[in-house]
Design a protein around this nucleic acid. Structure first.
Lengths: 177, 177
DNA sequence: GGTCTAGTAGACCAGTCTGTACAGTTGGCG
DNA sequence: CGCCAACTGTACAGACTGGTCTACTAGACC
């Protein structure tokens, strides 16, 4: 029996967008429902685990799509550009889809924290693979550092309302060869 | 007329601690008041601007103390160790005192966002100065990247519940010389 | 047609949120 | 003492929170 409606998907995508920009606590279920065009009954029918389940699934969705986006971008440099463009286009709201929720909830819900961590682990592996493919030595040691750089730059870019941090990281990576 | 009580300071420090660990929205005024041992009347007497003012001042306090801590640590390597120890000792709750609030509120309150940004700017300058003192070339280009690395590592360390990311960044920095 | 199920709609609940109001208390000073 | 300002304590307002409950509708199958 395939799904008959797209309500579940709509709500999930709306939630992912809002969590990304505002974090977990700042995003109310009512807001998700209003923007997603669904009533409460539907939410708890599709997500009996409530807000927490919604967050975990939204994080998984975001992580997968984000990974896909980066893969499409090809190079690290291309990825930084994509991130910068998106940030700018959204008025510096859409940064890392995981970081905001991660910090917000890290010490509260282990399920959500775990979902965030597995997203990071996946991206780290992607970076390591990309480096290996380019015959960079010590790819596995370098990957977490590069991921940290990018995450840090995304964070800073949001508070600074400028893509400069991303460009600085980009320039640095280029200088490494 | 100097102050007669330490209520204001107590509330501020409590708020700083809670905001650091939980972020802005997840921290209720009631919690701050309960843990700080103060009634509501006092809060709005000392901070007529409400929660927002409290957050701005807490951020400024945290930023200054954090800067002092890093300065005391001496080297970047020492600073990373201090950060890791603190993180571990707090059950991976006390990361960067700014990042959590920054992401939580960046798109909502410009005052708070600005307070976060000025903290980052100050740390960046501190890093640049430290590099310059060690005759590192291009200190001004390098500083924002190093700051991003550290912030990213702190974020990842919290979701991973491990200080490994900080150590990886430390090892990387050491490998640069 | 009758029946069954997936899904929708929204009223409702108890609790929490930030913020306000105002009376009460304290301590210094003339 | 009386007075004034600084400060505290508490009750309360109004909005909003996540979550529950139940009546309802649309479509598939017998």
């Amino acid at each position: 029996m395939p799904k008959k409606t797209d309500t579940r998907d709509r709500v999930l995508r709306t939630a992912a967008t809002l969590f990304r920009a505002q974090g977990y606590h700042a995003t109310g279920l009512n807001q998700v429902l209003a923007e997603g065009g669904a009533p409460k009954g539907s939410l708890y029918f599709h997500f009996p685990g409530g807000k927490e389940q919604l967050a975990v699934e939204a994080l998984q969705l975001s992580a997968a799509e984000f990974g896909q986006e980066l893969r499409t971008a090809g190079s690290l440099d291309g990825a930084l550009k994509v991130l910068g463009d998106r940030l700018e286009a959204s008025g510096f709201r859409d940064g890392c889809p995981v970081a905001t929720v991660a910090l917000d909830v890290a010490s509260e819900s282990d399920q959500i924290r775990a979902a965030c961590e597995s997203a990071y682990a996946m991206w780290e592996r992607m970076i390591a693979d990309a480096l290996t493919a380019r015959n960079v030595p010590n790819a596995n040691d370098l990957a977490p550092v590069i991921l940290a750089m990018i995450e840090g730059a995304l964070l800073r870019a949001r508070t600074q309302r400028s893509t400069a941090p991303l460009q600085q990281v980009g320039a640095y990576l280029k200088s490494l060869g």
